[in-house]
Design a protein around this nucleic acid. Structure first.
Lengths: 111, 111
DNA sequence: TTGACATGTCGCGAGATGACGATATAATTG
DNA sequence: CAATTATATCGTCATCTCGCGACATGTCAA
């Protein structure tokens, strides 16, 4: 089956326009940041305020706020104010599956 | 402790250092490009040459070569020369799961 | 060897990203 | 009201990304 370099193991070309992948790439780019990955991981276990997320990631809260805004703009998160604090939570269900894949690849059997 | 927007639905903090997420973010950044997503999708169905991938994505072959090199450097792909042509193929098994998640989110029920 | 073809590499420039400080808004407290 | 706390927004700047053209390498055939 595996000769020198044959095309024989190739099934039919899958469909998938570059246009649809552009949207996917935008969202993946949003996810592709260490702080944002950590935030999503935390938020998959419950709501957190901006300050709590900032503390966990060891960054100033205005920077945390910017990261959260980015993720909110592409539909990953939603927010809800409670007094002076703002709680963020997961709004995109697929994030759980995607995050599970990422954890399986990068966090499994380590640390 | 338990207010209106309570933290009660929060389980224990998951572990996950920013350092490990940095590596994950690097790889996600590599994946987060429409052309590279399409290439991975194709390669999950068989080997392709640089020229074939370039044609499918409507880009010059030197640009395709750069995209492929990026993905090879972070371990996603491997290459194999056959005469003047070079075949690329998937080298990271987890790509299949991750791509399935992405397709489920962005390509399902569309087009 | 010469020429053609497939792929790889390099440097450049336009545009995007990310962190920071300063400032602004919102809600609570005195 | 003013002061404090929590979050959001803005301008700036260093850095990175992407696509391009030019050129280099590698393979094959005449």
């Amino acid at each position: 089956m595996i000769g020198k370099a044959s095309k024989t193991n190739r099934t039919n070309k899958p469909r998938g326009s570059l246009e649809l992948f552009s949207e996917a790439a935008e969202c993946l780019k949003t996810l592709a940041h260490p702080v944002r990955l950590r935030m999503v991981q935390l938020l998959l276990h419950g709501k957190y305020t901006v300050g709590e997320l900032a503390d966990d990631c060891s960054i100033p809260s205005n920077v945390a706020s910017e990261h959260l805004r980015l993720m909110q703009r592409c539909g990953f998160l939603s927010s809800e104010r409670d007094g002076r604090q703002v709680y963020y939570q997961i709004a995109e269900p697929h994030l759980r599956n995607i995050m599970a894949c990422i954890e399986a690849r990068f966090l499994e059997g380590r640390a």
